[in-house]
Structures are given as structure tokens and as C-alpha cells.
Design a protein around this nucleic acid. Structure first.
Length: 887
RNA sequence: GGGCGGUUAGCUCAGUUGGUAGAGCGUCGGCCUUACAAGCCGAAUGCCAGGUGUUCAAGUCACCUACUGCCCACCA
């Protein structure tokens, strides 16, 4: 397979394109539900058709993809369903804007023509998001791609609606809802964003009907006075005790209305007297019903004052406010104007101020569905990180019924018809031909469509073919895990829970992983308006997908927001490059065929035994990190292994073995371990960096019985417990320490790297002596020694620099050219460090409580450390004295 | 008003059962050592926001304070 060596530089674009095409044409990620293997399934959080890929998607796709690829490696039967959301209001708005540019509008086009335009839009732009998902390397099954408005899903929506309706979970009624006068539709409570607005609090005097006085109310919205039908005070408010039960005269309109008392009123706020406008405030709506007040609507659907506004009719609500305040002032009723910062609801799609508005709408009685969704957590569905549980509960416990009708055209039209003859309401999955009550064929379908989240709520099972009984549902439902941003916990996750339980009688997923929001370097939310967006596609273009994916994974610590900046991606691109170059080096030193295996027990050299040991640890570490959703730990473990161990040490350590004149047995052994380590590293790295690892894999020689050219199909490497040799790891640390000691001396005394040093090692014991002898070549090479002596009784020359490593004295011979003062300073510094640590430890061990209460192994460890430090101190002091003698 | 999080090296952040701290970028010194200068070798830098408590031992657990984000909520 290794017919071509890897090119010198990694070219992400070509490599990525090739693998993407390969995986798609080979249907690598299309699973068979009838195949064995424990099911592992995930549905994509469907991006809006109108949208473009942003960093949030990139993070989401990276995490899901790494989970899926990892699950495949563990032999699971993995299904990841892709798709897009029709995003009702958002999409309709975009298309309407386009129409406006063309000088037309949806009303001019009519419903049918308008919908054609939206579908055309979906055709043009739905592909864009799809190609962007592909660019991320997402291992989704494109043969099962779904769209929330496709025929199958529309059928699921109708079925669910009818079921809910027949069981009494859906009702229609006149209620006060949130109304966006720009989008011209109702909004659900959570589609309203509250933003602080600098407003005013107007204090206005209302006269009592009997002429006995007046009461001053405070309001932020004087224009709604026209719809007032009462004034309310707190029952215990002494100021108004005598007035309760009388009538007031509403100014401007001169209407009589009751003054009543209810505990709802906050005595501290304003004047403690509240004007009640049942049609234009949700709380007043509630009071209006409780006290059977008049319901007077004075603002229409466009935000314009209507006939109930008398002289103000035809004004916008803003204009009306100004006029009415002026009029009240002229009448002397305006007592005071205060500045007031308060939260005002805005449409989450177009940012228009949302108006409470009374109209006929459809609702889901979520209050009846919420308890089961609540009870399923955490027993059936577990949320990660679990602090979101509380927030989930809190939301479900306080949820009001869900307004699901929208007065727009793009969406699932509500499957309800009204008989124009007898008024009968018919709710059916398919269009009825005649009224079941009177037989008339004159039926009119509901104009409204359903809230986008209604279809999204069915996504985990509608994508699998529900309401049909499909093999997919049987195998893959409930899904294994839902991965999404916490910002849609309520919008989406909670509703899927309710709908999954209602329709399937089972939770939609076993786990929910809520990942962070990606913010900019300053911690601000990325948005087009702030101009701080880092476009993942631009990053992919500049640094490659693998670099972006690795960066996102490395920053995906649970429960924290990610602050992303470009130089971090650039930084990790260096790592991608490092992997590439290390692989090139390995391939250069491997033949065209896979090296012959060497049994673990037969592996002789320390560096090979050490690396095999570390490889075992790494396999465990990465596996456990991914399974417990600690993605950053997985990335970090791989990073450190590859760079700080494999590259910085191992590749250097085997260089002597790879020389022409090296011992053939040693060379064969190192080639095998090198091959094995790279091979398994690539597998472990693949879920995070799919493209590059696949490319290197293809070039890696494989024995015939293992040959699998596509890394995406390779299983996770099995453990080799016999390779776990902690003693070898300890030995390696000693060798590294010995080499490091020489390097430090060289650097700090400013000795040229090319100068071959003469070094005497005075080992602490026989074992160390043997270890040093066995690794003579390695030490000589890496420390760049001319002569290396190992002698317990060796005589240190006076002109020498020294260091102690685990009791072994490292004595570097110095020639006359070096800076003796520098060595003296170095020794002083070293002894200072030792003294400081020793001081702390001695005090600790002198503490009886510590010695008696701490676990024996901890005490032992500290005692050993003291012994080692004392020894090092003594040796260094002696060497220092010797050294001083020549100065 | 309620809830959740953050405060660790110059900057941005890691740190799962409590045992005196790590990475990336940046800084300083030295290297073109035949995989990689997007690199190599070495170095510096932290009373882990402040306080109290639990403990032999606290960045890690509990409580309090300060600052700082975010979410929810019907104060007009």
C-alpha cells in the first residue's frame, strides 16, 4: 500500500475533497438496521435551510462526528441522520425581503405562488448548508437525509396533531398571546426576547366617578388607557382603603370603570395603583377574567389604533402615545414623568417590539405533557453537564400552554377544517371530503401553520419513518444521545421529550449533551451585527478542517463557553502539521511492507518497551475521555502523547536504530514498535482529525490479514495488557532525566550544541549503572557526548559542572573555555531550590498529625523525597566545594 | 426577585474521586542536529479573586464577601 511516500507538505483541500467523495460514494456511513452491533444513533440538530454554517454548527458537528466515529470503532451499528429545518418565520422573512426588493409581496403573489417561491429558495439554499456540513467531515448517512417539510415528516406532523387533538392535548381558543406586528403572527413565550429599554413611567390622575377625589396610577404605556376597564390596588393599601368599590372615570375616553383590590398589585411600585387593560397586557388579561371586566381592544394587528381609540384611530401606537401624553398634560392629569428602565419583549426573529394581543389561536396543553418529560430525567434521560437538570425542571414546572399557531404561510398547515354550513370543526390527518355532521362539502381549512418547533419536536422519530413501523425505528429509537447548544434546551430538547414520550411512549434519547456557545475572543456572542464572526468555512480554507476540528475539541470543556480566536486555530494547525511530519518520518523508516511482529515479551530496548506501555495508557485515556464526554481531555492526551513523547523522545531515541550500521534485530524491533504506535495513534486520532489520519493510514503498510484501506472502517485497537510495564516507564524517566541534565548544563553554560561533551555518571546503584550502560548509544546521541563514563567510584575533575538525577551524579567535564561563574550561579540556584523544598517537607514530616493520619503511601512518598533531596544536596555541595577550589 | 456559572502564568483557558499547578499564544537565550524553522534544545513567570471553616493536607469540599457573565420571572 505504501507505493507513494507522503508529500512534504500537507494539502488539506485535495485530501479532504478526496475522502469526502470516497466516503459518500462508498456509503461508508450508511448502516444497515438489520446488521448486528449495538445500535448507536444520533439525529443532527437540523440547521435552518436559510442559514449558513457558523461556529456553533462547527462545534456541534465536530462533537457528534467524533462520537459517531468513535462508536463505529467500538463496533457499534451507527446511524447519524442529517437534515434541515424549514424554520418557518425565519425563512418566510428572508423570502419576503427578497420579494420586497422585486417590488412585490407575498400578498400580491398569493399563498400558492408564494410557497412556490419559498420552495425554490429551499432548493437553492438548502444545498449550501448541506455542502457546508460535508466540509466539516460529518459522517452522516446522506441516504437518510430529511427535511422538516418533506412528505414523510409532514405526515408525521399531521398524525401527531390529530392524536394530540383527539386525546385533548390540543385546543383552540381566544387568548392573549405575543404578537409581532411586523411578522404578523403569534409567537410562543420563548420566542420573545426581553431587552432593557429606557422608557418612562407616567403618573396620571383618574377621577372618581362620585367626585369624591381622584387616584393617580403609573403606567409605561399611556396609549393603552384607551383600552382600560378598571383600576386595581392592593387590598391592604391604606392609601386607597376608602376608594375600593367605587368607580373611576377613564380619562380621554370618559368611561366608567371599577376600582377594585387584588393582592397581585405591588404597593411599592409606582403609586401602588394599577390601570387594568385586559386586552393589552397578559396580567391585566388575567385580572380582567377574574373580575369580569370589559375587554376593549384598541390596538390592531399592525400596531395601529383602531375604532375603539376614538380620536386616536389610525395613529400608530407610538404616535398615539405622544399625542395622548400631550392631551393629558393639557388637561392637567399628568402628575409626573419618571425615567424607567424596564424589560420589553422583542420578536426573536425581527426584533420588533412584541405586543400582547388577543386573538384566536391553537394551543398544546403542555401543562399536561410536561410532568412525564420531567419525570424521565434523570432516570431515563441523563443530561450532561447535570447542572442543567435543575434548569430543565424549573422550566417544565412553570410552563404555560404552548401557542402553536402562526399566522404565516411557510410551514405545516394546521390539519383542521371548518364546515361552512354548520360550523363543525373537523381535525383529520387527510383532507376530509364532507362534513361528518351535515354532509356539506363546503369545508375551509385553517389558514394558520404550525410553529416550527412543532415539527422539530418530532425529529428523533419522524426522521426514522414514524408513524410507519420501520426497521430504523425498531433498531435506533430511542437515539443514544442528543448533542446541542444549551440555548435551545427549552425550544427543542424539552419539546422533543414531551413529544417523544407522547407519541412513542419512550424518551427520544438516553443522553443529552449540552455544549457551550462559541463566543469571540472577548466573550461576546458572535453575530453578524457585531462583526465578530469567525467563519468556519474561512478557517477551513485557511487551516484545514482537521485543524479547526481539533481546536474545537480541545476547547470543548464541559459547561464552559468557548472563546475562539483565529490564532488558536493557527496554533493547533501546527499540531496537525506535526502529526504529518512525524508520519512522514515513520514511513521513511518503514519498508513497503508491514514490519514483522515482535511479541511483547521479546521487546528488548527500553524505549520500545516504554512506548508500548504509554500506548496502552493512551488507549485507555482516550476511550474513557470520549465515553464520559470529556473531549478536551481526549484531545490533550493525544496532543501530549504525539508531540511530547512520540516526537520529542521516541523518534529521536530510535534514530540510532535506523542507521545503516545498526543491529538488524534492534532495527526490526524498533520498526515494528514504530509502525504499531503510529498505526494505533492514527486510529485514536481519527475521530477528531478524520481527513489527515485517513490519508496517512492509506500510506501506512499493512499486513495482508489486516488490510483495510479506509481508516473510517477500522476498529479501536484491542488492549495489550502484557505491554503495561510501569517499571519501564520509570526507567525511561530516569534516562530522560540524565539526558536533560546534560542538556541543561550545556544550555546554561552556553556550550555550543555541536561540542561533544565528556560526561561521567556516578550511579546511585547497580540498577542505574546497568540502565545507563544499556542505553549508552541513546544517551550519547541525544545528549551529544564524545565520551560517556559510568563509574560509581569515578573521580570528578575539578573543572566540571554537575547535576543529580534520582541520586545519580551527572558530571560534565569542562574545558577552559567555559564560564565558571555561570556554573557556580547555576549550582547555587539548584541548591536553593532543593533547600526550599526540603524545608517544606521536613516541616510536614515533623507534624505528628500528618505522619499518623495521612495514608502510609503518602507519608512514604514524602520520606523518599526527603531522602532523595538530602542526598542530592550533599552530592551537589561536595561538587560545589571541589569546583570552588579551582577558582 | 429567583437560578446557574466564572475569577488559576503577560493573554486565552485546562486541571473526574482533596496530596503545594499545566497547555496554546507570547517572552528570553541558544540551534538550519539529514520528519518538521508551522521546527529543535534550554529558561523565566502563578500568596490558583479575598475571607472563614472542614481536614494531617484545599485550586480541588462547605459557607461568606467582592467583582463579572448568562438564563428564567407577570412589577404595570
Amino acid at each position: 500500500m505504501a507505493e507513494t511516500a507522503l508529500p512534504k507538505g500537507y494539502e488539506p483541500h485535495d485530501v479532504e475533497a478526496r475522502w469526502r467523495e470516497h466516503w459518500e460514494s462508498e456509503h461508508t456511513f450508511t448502516p444497515d438496521p438489520k446488521a448486528p452491533g449495538e445500535p448507536y444513533s444520533i439525529v443532527i440538530p437540523p440547521p435552518n435551510v436559510t442559514g449558513a454554517l457558523h461556529m456553533g454548527h462547527a462545534l456541534n458537528l465536530t462533537i457528534i462526528d467524533l462520537l459517531c466515529r468513535h462508536a463505529r470503532q467500538k463496533g457499534k451499528n451507527v446511524l447519524w441522520i442529517p437534515g434541515e429545518d424549514h424554520a418557518g418565520i425565519a425563512t418566510q422573512n428572508v423570502v419576503e425581503r427578497q420579494l420586497a426588493k422585486e417590488g412585490t409581496s407575498r400578498h400580491k403573489l398569493g399563498r400558492e405562488k408564494f410557497l412556490e417561491r419559498v420552495w425554490k429558495w429551499r432548493e437553492d439554499y438548502g444545498n449550501r448548508i448541506v455542502s457546508q456540513i460535508k466540509a466539516m467531515g460529518a459522517s452522516v448517512d446522506w441516504t437518510r437525509e430529511r427535511f422538516t417539510m418533506d412528505e414523510g415528516l409532514s405526515r408525521a406532523v399531521r398524525r401527531c396533531f390529530v392524536d394530540l387533538y383527539r386525546k385533548g392535548y390540543i385546543y383552540r381558543g381566544k387568548y392573549i398571546i405575543n404578537w409581532c406586528s411586523r411578522c404578523h403572527t403569534a409567537l410562543a413565550d420563548d420566542e420573545v426576547e426581553h431587552q432593557p429599554v429606557k422608557g418612562h413611567l407616567w403618573h396620571i390622575r383618574y377621577d372618581l366617578e362620585d367626585g369624591s377625589g381622584s387616584i393617580v396610577i403609573a403606567t409605561t404605556r399611556p396609549e393603552t388607557i384607551l383600552g382600560d376597564s378598571g383600576v386595581c390596588v392592593h387590598p391592604d393599601d391604606e392609601r386607597y382603603k376608602g376608594m375600593v368599590g367605587k368607580n373611576v372615570i377613564i380619562p380621554v375616553v370618559n368611561r366608567k370603570a371599577p376600582l377594585f383590590a387584588d393582592k397581585y398589585v405591588d404597593r411599592e411600585f409606582g403609586t401602588g395603583a394599577l390601570k387594568v387593560t385586559p386586552c393589552h397586557d397578559p396580567n391585566d388579561w388575567m385580572l380582567g377574567h377574574r373580575y369580569k371586566l370589559e375587554f376593549i381592544q384598541c390596538i390592531d394587528e399592525d400596531g395601529v389604533m383602531n375604532e375603539n381609540a376614538g380620536p386616536y384611530k389610525g395613529m400608530t401606537k407610538e404616535a398615539c402615545r405622544e399625542k395622548i401624553v400631550a392631551d393629558l398634560e393639557a388637561e392637567g392629569r399628568l402628575v409626573k414623568v419618571e425615567d424607567l428602565d424596564h424589560g420589553v419583549g422583542h420578536c426573536y426573529r425581527c426584533k420588533t417590539v412584541v405586543e400582547p394581543h388577543v386573538s384566536e389561536q391553537w394551543f398544546v396543553a403542555t401543562s399536561k405533557l410536561a410532568p412525564m418529560a420531567r419525570d424521565a430525567v434523570p432516570s431515563k434521560t441523563q443530561i450532561f453537564p447535570d447542572n442543567w437538570e435543575k434548569i430543565y425542571y424549573n422550566w417544565l414546572d412553570n410552563m404555560r400552554d404552548w401557542c402553536i399557531s402562526r399566522q404565516i404561510w411557510w410551514g405545516h398547515r394546521i390539519p383542521a377544517w371548518t364546515c361552512q354550513q354548520c360550523g363543525e370543526l373537523i381535525v383529520e390527518e387527510e383532507a376530509p371530503h364532507a362534513c361528518p355532521k351535515c354532509g356539506s362539502a363546503d369545508l375551509k381549512q385553517e389558514d394558520d401553520v404550525l410553529d416550527t418547533w412543532f415539527s422539530s419536536a418530532l425529529w428523533p422519530f419522524s426522521t426514522m419513518g414514524w408513524p410507519d413501523k420501520t426497521p430504523e425505528l425498531k433498531k435506533y429509537y430511542p437515539t443514544s444521545i442528543l448533542v446541542t447548544g444549551f440555548d435551545i434546551l427549552f425550544f427543542w430538547v424539552a419539546r422533543m421529550m414531551m413529544m417523544g414520550l407522547f407519541n412513542m411512549n419512550q424518551v427520544p434519547f438516553h443522553h443529552v449533551y449540552l455544549h457551550a456557545l462559541v463566543r469571540d475572543a472577548e466573550g461576546k456572542k458572535m453575530s453578524k451585527s457585531s462583526g465578530n464572526v469567525i467563519d468556519p468555512l474561512v478557517m477551513i480554507d485557511k487551516y484545514g478542517t482537521d485543524a479547526l476540528r481539533f481546536t474545537l475539541t480541545a476547547f470543548a470543556a464541559m459547561g464552559r463557553d468557548i472563546r475562539l480566536s483565529e490564532d488558536r486555530i493557527e496554533g493547533y494547525r501546527h499540531f496537525v502539521n506535526k502529526v504529518w511530519n512525524a508520519s512522514r518520518f515513520a514511513l521513511m523508516n518503514l519498508g513497503d511492507e508491514a514490519p514483522a511482529p515482535v511479541a511483547p515479551a521479546q521487546v528488548k530496548s527500553l524505549h520500545n518497551r516504554w512506548l508500548l506501555h504509554r500506548l496502552e495508557e493512551l488507549k485507555d485515556e482516550v476511550d474513557q475521555a470520549i465515553e464520559s464526554y470529556r473531549f478536551n481531555d481526549a484531545a490533550q492526551a493525544l496532543y501530549k502523547f504525539l508531540w511530547n513523547e512520540f516526537c520529542d523522545w521516541y523518534l529521536e531515541l530510535i534514530k540510532p536504530d535506523m542507521r545503516e550500521d545498526a543491529d538488524p534485530a534492534a532495527k526490526a524491533e524498533s520498526q515494528y514498535v514504530l509502525w504499531l504506535a503510529l498505526r494505533e495513534f492514527l486510529i485514536l486520532m481519527h475521530p477528531i482529525m478524520p481527513f489527515m489520519t485517513a490519508e496517512i493510514w492509506k500510506a501506512l503498510p499493512e499486513p495482508a490479514d489486516l488490510a483495510e484501506p479506509d481508516l473510517a472502517r477500522v476498529l479501536y485497537p484491542a488492549a495489550r495488557p502484557e505491554c503495561r510495564q510501569p517499571e519501564d516507564a520509570a526507567r525511561m524517566i530516569f534516562i530522560q532525566g540524565a539526558i536533560g541534565a546534560v542538556r541543561t548544563i550545556r544550555a546554561e553554560l552556553n556550550i555550543a550544541p555541536s561540542y561533544k561533551l565528556t560526561v561521567l555518571f556516578r550511579p546511585a546503584d547497580q540498577a542505574q549503572a546497568a540502565l545507563l550502560e544499556q542505553n549508552r548509544t541513546v544517551i550519547t546521541t541525544l545528549a551529544r557526548l564524545g565520551e560517556m563514563m559510568v563509574d560509581t567510584a569515578g573521580e570528578a575533575p575539578k573543572a566540571s559542572a554537575s547535576h543529580v538525577v534520582e541520586g545519580c551524579e551527572v558530571i560534565v567535564h569542562l574545558s577552559g573555555a567555559v564560564d565558571f561563574q555561570a556554573e557556580l550561579a547555576r549550582l547555587e540556584k539548584e541548591l536553593g531550590k532543593i533547600a526550599k523544598e526540603l524545608g517544606g517537607l521536613t516541616a510536614k514530616l515533623a507534624n505528628q498529625n500528618f505522619v499518623s493520619r495521612a495514608p502510609a503511601e503518602i507519608v512514604k512518598r514524602e520520606q523518599d523525597r526527603v531522602a532523595e533531596l538530602t542526598d542530592a544536596k550533599e552530592k551537589l555541595t561536595n561538587l560545589q566545594a571541589r569546583f570552588k577550589a579551582i577558582m
